[in-house]
């Protein structure tokens, strides 16, 4: 499987999915014109990736989105659900939620992800 790398644009985040290193990183702002089209290939790649997990790998997912709109949120829920299901099957998956220390909305959203996707090892990373 080839790694997936999409550089950030003004309205879409950096997507850096290193299958070989078991690392996925989303970073930047997310308000694409078509969130389903933007996140579609990533969702597909993620499903294929978790299906191929052998067990024993430590998967690290870093999300550092300073802004994401509602349709992006909908797509993110799909990604986290895929990860959560894989974690329920015994895979070790950590979700690192990076947010601005001042951003209460992002902080609370992270706390809710922790509640909604309990199989993921959740780590909040407030930054200045």
């Amino acid at each position: 499987m080839d790694n997936l790398h999409l550089p950030a644009t003004a309205s879409t985040p950096l997507v850096d999915f290193r299958y070989d290193a078991h690392q996925l990183r989303l970073e930047g702002e997310s308000y694409p014109e078509n969130a389903a089209a933007f996140y579609g290939p990533l969702a597909e790649g993620l499903r294929a990736y978790v299906a191929g997990l052998q067990g024993g790998e430590q998967v690290e997912v870093h999300v550092a989105l300073s802004y994401f709109n509602s349709s992006s949120t909908k797509m993110l829920f799909g990604l986290f659900d895929t990860l959560n299901q894989a974690a329920e099957q015994g895979h070790r998956i950590a979700l690192h939620w990076h947010h601005d220390r001042e951003d209460d909305i992002a902080e609370e959203f992270g706390e809710e992800l922790h509640i909604d996707f309990p199989a993921l090892a959740f780590h909040a990373h407030p930054a200045d």
Binding site: F77, I105, D116
Partner: peptide, 17 residues
């Protein structure tokens, strides 16, 4: 339902802000 609830409460918070 859960996702709608999250989306609505997030947008409510954003609206307040």
């Amino acid at each position: 339902m859960r996702e709608s609830h999250r989306l609505i409460s997030r947008s409510d918070r954003a609206e307040r802000e």
